[in-house]
Amino acid sequence: MKRTPEFIQLLTSSQSRLYGYILSLLYDADQANDVLQQTNVILWEKEEEFSLGSNFIAWSFQIAYFQVLAHRKQLQRERLSFDSDLLADIANVSREAEESFESRQKLMRQCLQKLNRRQQEIVYRRYQSNASLDSIAIETANTVNAVKQLLFRARSALARCINQGLEQEMNS
């Protein structure tokens, strides 16, 4: 079977979210990596069952959930393991958080656009480029305290904007 570029893009771009979901169910990075690999093999094998345009994340999370259950069966002989009801509850919470992830990301992008240009630049340098406060101060010809103040104001504006957006979403 020939792999479609769209499926490959969906699979590769969802890896960090899929890993986070699996990790939230297992709480062990090594086990999560193992289950992620198993899940990827199954996703790859079941490409024909996926309809392009439908929710790839939901589909992949369901497959990952069953892989976590299978993995847990293999680990039953260990002393500490979560019971199935608790695991299902954790999976539901993770799914709900994932469902709101995209809307929260969209809201964050919208709020970032509302910052003034100087605040956007400082936020980008600090969080996108991982620059230190000292290097930002040097690059922008500001003091470190001035950079801290700009970041504080930008984060405050973002928090207000995001909270307003979340309130609007809840009320609609």
Rank of each mutant, 00 (worst) to 15 (best):
R104M: 13
I8Y: 05
R125K: 10
K46F: 07
Q62M: 13
R117E: 09
K2I: 13
E47I: 13
N40S: 15
Y65K: 03
V68I: 07
S51W: 00
T12N: 14
V144K: 11
S103P: 05
G165L: 01
Q38L: 11
F56S: 03
I8H: 09
Q38G: 13
L52M: 09
T4K: 10
F66K: 04
V35E: 00
I57V: 06
R77C: 11
N171L: 14
N130F: 06
R17K: 12
V147D: 00
L26E: 01
D85Y: 03
L112D: 01
A91Q: 03
E45H: 10
E102M: 09
L151M: 04
A131C: 14
Y19S: 10
R17V: 07
N33R: 10
Q105L: 12
Q149M: 11
Q76H: 11
R109N: 02
L158A: 07
W44Q: 13
R153G: 08
N40C: 15
S81L: 13
C161I: 04
Q31I: 02
R3T: 15
E167A: 15
K73W: 01
Q76Y: 06
D30E: 12
S13E: 08
I162K: 00
V35F: 01
S94T: 07
K2M: 14
A131D: 09
E48F: 03
A88E: 06
G53C: 13
R72F: 01
F56R: 00
Q110I: 04
S14E: 03
R155H: 05
F152E: 06
L69Q: 05
K46C: 14
T4W: 03
K2H: 12
H71E: 04
G53N: 09
L18P: 09
E139W: 03
I162E: 00
I22A: 06
G53D: 08
R160L: 07
F7M: 04
I57T: 02
E45F: 02
Q149T: 12
